[in-house]
């Protein structure tokens, strides 16, 4: 299994008045190359689950093994290193920095790696071409269309060539045509052998072609829905 979660609990602000149990005894297993959906209402814990799978922070308790590493044991520094190698993130609002160029956004994950500008270009150009945004490479990211923005987000998620792609409500700000384009891109990535996990309550996503399994998320509990 590429991703194994056992008895995962995540409590925010533990011990304080605003304590929230965002995940409650979650069990989940995803094999490499699968495409998985997390479906649930707002506030149910989808983003939190993605953050744990994505090695952004460790769970409060439980066992999480992502690509061969057990998270709970890793300090922040190694969590970040592991994330850099294994995870590509596509955020709900894409989280593209609007004031820097499309190209600079795409290569952002490479800057701390000590790559020369030439090496960065060699990695980024094929992605810009593939997602049809090469002609926008020097535009400030704040000045391009929503569909292009979404493809910049995909390109950035792929720049480190990660085996796992996580997408948090990827279609929330896209119309249905762009949503379908996005899902087609995800399917193509699945066919390359990458593992894809999307959180969404959009039926277009949960019922998309290529989705192997849909998990239901309710009040921090995860149930297996048949698809």
């Amino acid at each position: 299994m590429l991703i194994e979660l056992e008895n995962i609990v995540k409590i925010y602000n533990q011990g304080r008045v605003n304590e929230v149990t965002a995940l409650d005894k979650v069990e989940m297993a995803v094999e490499a190359g699968a495409m998985v959906c997390l479906k649930g209402p707002s506030g149910s814990g989808k983003s939190t689950l993605l953050a744990i799978i994505g090695c952004i922070y460790p769970p409060t308790s439980g066992r999480a093994v992502i690509a061969g590493r057990q998270l709970a044991r890793l300090p922040d520094r190694f969590l970040t290193m592991h994330r850099r190698r294994t995870i590509g993130f596509i955020f709900q609002r894409f989280n593209i920095l609007p004031r820097i160029s499309v190209f600079e956004n795409v290569v952002l994950p490479l800057l701390p790696l000590g790559m020369s500008p030439k090496e960065r270009r060699a990695l980024a150009e094929p992605l810009l071409e593939r997602y049809g945004i090469a002609h926008r490479r020097n535009f400030p990211a704040g000045e391009i269309s929503g569909g292009e923005l979404q493809r910049v987000a995909i390109a950035r998620a792929l720049i480190n060539d990660p085996p796992i792609i996580l997408a948090d409500e990827p279609t929330a700000h896209l119309d249905s045509r762009l949503s379908r384009d996005f899902l087609a891109d995800m399917l193509a990535l699945k066919e390359e052998g990458r593992t894809i996990i999307m959180a969404s309550h959009d039926p277009l996503v949960t019922e998309a072609a290529g989705v192997d399994r849909v998990y239901g998320v309710h009040d921090g509990r995860v149930t297996k829905d048949a698809c």
Binding site: G54, I56, T80, R84, F89, N95, P109, L111, P112, R156
Partner: peptide
């Protein structure tokens, strides 16, 4: 704050 969060998630270490 958002920029720092994004950089962190994209794999920047705190010292970076």
């Amino acid at each position: 704050r958002r920029e720092i969060s994004i950089l962190k998630i994209l794999g920047w270490q705190t010292p970076d």
